[in-house]
């Protein structure tokens, strides 16, 4: 990793430039400064986020209490707010995205790790990294001009035959947003699952082969079987990403503040917390209106943080248990 010659040079340079006998003032303050800044920056930042959001949303919290979450009407003119519609939109788009992506992601990871020859794996990884690196606004642009026309032309008519509510589907809908999300979370899902597959000892695979298992059976019973916690972590982290995704969703979901017409109203326009913020935050006038939007941001922060921390803790626990072997 480190180039030895460089290291030797830098060692000599530092020796030449440092007076070994005396500790300079900078040296004395180095460790305390690192503690202060290194630990201080993340702590101050997280405090800043929480404090700002709680302070700004306090008005709405005291005005509505829990009623905010059960009410469906969103009426800035009457100054009456209910956010059920947006919570529904956020959860439903993310869950549908996971339902689409998870089985697909496991299959893709299987192909990438168990079936693709190792020398091709790098190329595969690069293309997934590329997919992860595309800015979300470009997913949205593509969604508006390519995906939605395609869904309207080729998918919804066929799906409508099997599932009648789709016949009335318009392009910009919760379902379209879910599909865009499912594409966007694929790289994170696959890369974590592949990492998990990588930790499965070869000898376990061989033991299963030795019992007369086919490659698929080895994958199913041993590889996927032993990586279930990793797959759970990947799902949580992907869910965290989906819950907070803003631009691509905003551009294809239809941005309707009307409450869902039924429990399963996924083929009509909707709104997520983040798309509502993107649409209305900069134009919000009135303290209560703005404060409600802040409270939504706080809800989103708490929601994604819980999901992510769970995922992070599982990953951490896994790393420790494999590190101990």
């Amino acid at each position: 990793m480190a180039n030895e010659k460089n290291t030797a040079n830098s060692l000599l340079n530092s020796l030449a430039s440092s007076d070994l006998s005396a500790k300079s003032l900078a040296d004395k303050w180095f460790a305390p400064a690192m503690y202060l800044l290194g630990a201080g920056i993340p702590l101050v930042l997280s405090f800043l986020y929480l404090f700002t959001l709680i302070k700004e949303s306090w008005l709405a919290i005291t005005a509505f209490g829990l009623r905010l979450f059960t009410q469906t009407s969103w009426d800035p003119i009457q100054n009456n707010y209910g956010v059920f519609t947006f919570i529904y939109g956020t959860l439903v788009t993310s869950f549908i995205a996971i339902i689409i992506s998870l089985p697909l992601g496991i299959m893709v990871a299987t192909f990438v790790y168990e079936y693709v020859p190792p020398n091709l794996r790098v190329t595969v990884r690069n293309s997934l990294d590329l997919l992860a690196g595309i800015p979300s606004v470009i997913y949205g642009l593509w969604g508006i001009f390519v995906l939605i026309p395609f869904l309207k032309r080729s998918v919804y008519p066929g799906l409508g035959v099997v599932f009648p509510p789709v016949q009335s589907a318009i392009g910009n809908s919760i379902f379209s947003a879910s599909i865009v999300l499912s594409i966007m979370i694929m790289p994170i899902l696959v890369s974590i699952i592949v990492e998990g597959f990588d930790t499965v000892p070869q000898s376990l695979r061989e033991a299963m082969y030795g019992l007369g298992a086919t490659r698929w059976e080895v994958t199913k019973h041993v590889v996927v079987g032993t990586t279930k916690p990793t797959i759970a972590a990947a799902t949580l982290l992907a869910l965290g990403r989906a819950l907070g995704e803003t631009m691509a969703v905003t551009m294809v979901i239809g941005n309707s503040n009307n409450p869902p017409s039924s429990f399963f109203a996924i083929f009509e326009p909707g709104q997520t917390i983040s798309s509502l913020l993107a649409n209305e935050f900069s134009e919000a006038s009135g303290a209560l209106y703005l404060s409600t939007l802040f409270e939504l941001a706080l809800v989103l922060l708490v929601l994604t943080s819980i999901v992510n921390i769970l995922g992070i803790l599982i990953v951490k626990r896994l790393k420790q248990s494999y590190g101990g072997q």
Partner: peptide, 20 residues
């Protein structure tokens, strides 16, 4: 696969399936 079904194997390090 059919061959391996007829020939059992035991490995150097004990490797019971950890998920079972």
């Amino acid at each position: 696969v059919v061959v391996r079904r007829r020939i059992g194997m035991v490995f150097q390090k004990p490797n019971p399936f950890p998920n079972m």
